[in-house]
């Protein structure tokens, strides 16, 4: 049986999580994206994870299948669908990503194994270094185990984007969490295409001079 056929069967017969369709493809859920008049931030395809770094509330962690339902929404499969029956492999993630279901997952996070962060007994949870379970929503605490300075800066408002009020007596503030910006499987910050290039005389003249310079060489 090919993985594709297996996937189809699973979709027909087991838990379907079409609700999280959009984010399954790696796009951010819209409630955390607020830059007006701009498309939601998308990690460039090359580094995009199968497992999205952030999930809407009320959905279970899942992987994308590459399929879409008749609404045109992406279809995912909850992790627990498979991981309730399979033996966990502690070697996975150290050198290679699992072959089945996790195709396309780029893994580059300090050579840890999957089970460094995912809980072997409960795939709906994360795992802290001391073995305790941690909800996916609280992934920051997992990150904090290694990334102390970043966590310190985050807690003091000097790391990570935010929106709302500087004066907390006047209004609310929403903040990104680690996984809003960093793919947990490949956390290096991705490259962006810069927006809004300057269009004034400075930029024009600089471009002209550089073109002249190149012609001369």
């Amino acid at each position: 049986m090919t993985p594709r056929a297996a996937t189809t069967l699973i979709i027909l017969g087991f838990t379907l999580t079409a609700t999280g369709g959009q984010w399954l493809l790696g796009a951010r859920p819209t409630n955390t994206e607020a830059t007006s008049a701009e498309k939601p931030f998308r990690t460039p395809a090359a580094t995009r994870s199968v497992v999205p770094p952030h999930r809407p509330e009320g959905t279970r962690p899942s992987v994308a299948t590459g399929l879409v339902n008749h609404h045109g929404e992406a279809v995912g499969v909850a992790c627990m669908t498979c991981h309730t029956t399979r033996e966990p492999n502690r070697e996975n993630g150290l050198n290679a990503v699992p072959r089945e279901f996790h195709q396309g997952l780029v893994y580059a996070h300090a050579g840890q194994s999957c089970l460094s962060c995912h809980h072997a007994e409960d795939y709906d949870s994360l795992r802290l270094a001391d073995g305790r379970k941690l909800a996916f929503d609280e992934a920051q605490n997992l990150c904090a185990q290694c990334h102390g300075p970043q966590t310190r800066d985050y807690l003091n408002g000097s790391h990570g984007g935010m929106k709302g009020y500087w004066d907390k007596t006047k209004g609310e503030r929403t903040r990104n969490t680690c996984t809003d910006c960093h793919d947990p499987h490949a956390p290096a910050y991705p490259a962006w295409t810069p927006v809004f290039p300057p269009r004034d005389a400075a930029a024009r003249q600089q471009a002209e001079r550089e073109a002249r310079h190149q012609d001369n060489h």
Binding site: T35, S158, G160, G161, G164
Partner: peptide, 16 residues
């Protein structure tokens, strides 16, 4: 900012 809000440039900053 005089209403307690963050400036637009800060809100737009994706990296904090």
């Amino acid at each position: 900012s005089r209403q307690g809000k963050l400036p637009a440039c800060l809100e737009a900053c994706p990296t904090g």
